[in-house]
Design a protein around this nucleic acid. Structure first.
Lengths: 281, 281
DNA sequence: CCCGATTGTCTTTTTTATAAGACATTTAGT
DNA sequence: ACTAAATGTCTTATAAAAAAGACAATCGGG
């Protein structure tokens, strides 16, 4: 299965160290082996080790102190902006108000066969296609490609799109969103998405595809969303209800945006999350 | 933000074409530009174009016909094994029965500070750490790293782990799982996960971190799961309930495993999904 | 204050990826 | 059967990444 397109050695080592750190195999604030040691251990040159460490440092995962060594610096400093889960979409609407939106492109296109099928429309039907980027604190965190049937898209303007969440626009114009399907997956960043999200090409992205239907069964919105996983993730709290025979997990809460953590590699000494644990009775 | 670790040209082109195909900018079964044309268009040599196309072909995204050209071959042939959403975990338990499990490693370790905090335990407490790979039809689709407090882990054997889902083992030994938190994100495959999941290093992975608590508030399971997004994804169907004033989206269904599609590059002519659309009334 | 070990920054050589082109093979159409 | 255009497979030259080593700058500890 592995093709000949082997990653470069530096990238390989980067991903290896990254995996170890994320998994906690190297504890927080612990010193990594020295560069010469890593070079020998992995059978590569020090230049290569250095490139891998450079990338880790720019990710904010390690901190390098000349003369002392390189140290693991708080891997997961994600702190929440919690929200309700039962209303995933509603939450997104509300969040749309707090965050900024950049409209990248806006046009009318013919539906591809695949798109038409997903929206339960006739193939070749005209669709309004818009590409937007959502920002939080001026930092992009999601890349959204939306397709809406032309006649529906006519009910709002291009300017509306840059300021108001789409679902709100749709309901405002009398449409009823009754059913929706969502698929959450992962993919690699292509040049477009990477550029819009200020990421390297080939970075990991959280993807969500959502199709919203009106009571008649016809689709009124097709959304392909790509998220920077370090700035956005899906959270849910579950509780077990019901007796032992018919036990169930019921959602209580979900979808939260992580406030970005790193971003500035030369910041004021990595703060690690407070221990805040509880002693046993 | 972009570091100096630029992807190679072949990889860059691969991700570019991949993005275009997934986004439907090149329709299904349509012919791509010829190799020389692509080379000129992107300012690279034909060898590089060729390497990018090789990778796309091994992903099953394109089909190359000597003398004719290269064609897009059904990008998303994912077909379901649907399940209920309200009981995400229950579903996983049931699915555990249908799929195979390979136990990769099994050991007792000291809790890292981060792990102890997530489980609300004392730092340094002994944990049972197990690494498993879940298979569906003999193909790996998830890589699971589980941490369980030692005394709890004692209640079952290593062999149990390879055959029975962990949550079932826990409840079988009298423990009550009352609360759980899940976080869904995305990450890049390191060497370990990539090897276990039969993927290239640097592939995109769906990640889920789950922590289960008993009524006392102490954690009894910490699961770090990595999924191959082409074989596993989270699905949910939502319905809008309630009146216009207090409209809500309520989940109806979720978590499904896609039956794998490609995998064998030399298979019996790519079958494309049946059109199966509906005509308007 | 010095010593040893570390990261930071060069240079030079070797290895690998890419570029450029020639030519064979397959296919669809005339 | 022939032709035009496509992929498949080479060869050789160039550009870029990696290896190997030297040396300076910084830090911590004895």
């Amino acid at each position: 299965m592995s093709s000949t397109m082997e990653p470069l050695k530096a990238r390989r080592l980067y991903l290896l160290l990254r995996e170890q750190i994320l998994r906690g195999e190297v504890a927080l604030d612990e010193r990594l082996p020295s560069e010469p040691a890593l070079a020998q251990e992995h059978g590569v040159s020090r230049v290569t080790v250095r490139r891998a460490l450079d990338k880790l440092a720019s990710d904010g995962m390690i901190e390098r102190r000349p003369g002392s060594g390189t140290f693991v610096s708080g891997g997961k400093t994600s702190m929440p902006v919690v929200a309700d889960f039962s209303n995933v979409l509603t939450h997104l609407v509300e969040m749309g108000r707090k965050t900024g939106v950049r409209l990248i492109s806006f046009a009318y296109v013919n539906a591809t066969p695949a798109m038409a099928e997903e929206l339960r429309l006739d193939p070749g039907e005209r669709l309004q296609r818009s590409v937007r980027v959502r920002l939080i604190d001026g930092q992009p965190f999601s890349y959204l490609v939306t397709h809406v049937p032309e006649r529906i898209g006519m009910s709002y303007s291009e300017a509306d799109l840059a300021s108001t969440p789409l679902l709100e626009l749709l309901e405002r114009s009398g449409l009823v969103a009754e059913r929706a399907t969502q698929v959450i997956g992962a993919t690699l960043a292509g040049p477009e998405a990477a550029g819009a999200l200020d990421l390297d090409i080939g970075a990991a992205l959280l993807s969500m595809t959502r199709v919203v239907f009106e009571p008649s069964g016809r689709g009124i919105e097709h959304l392909q969303a790509l998220y920077r996983p370090d700035r956005y993730s899906f959270h849910m709290d579950l509780e077990r209800t019901g007796a032992d025979g018919a036990r169930r997990w019921t959602p209580a809460d979900a979808v939260r945006a992580s406030e970005q953590n790193n971003e500035n590699k030369k910041n004021t000494r990595t703060k690690r999350p407070p221990p805040q644990r509880r002693t046993k009775p």
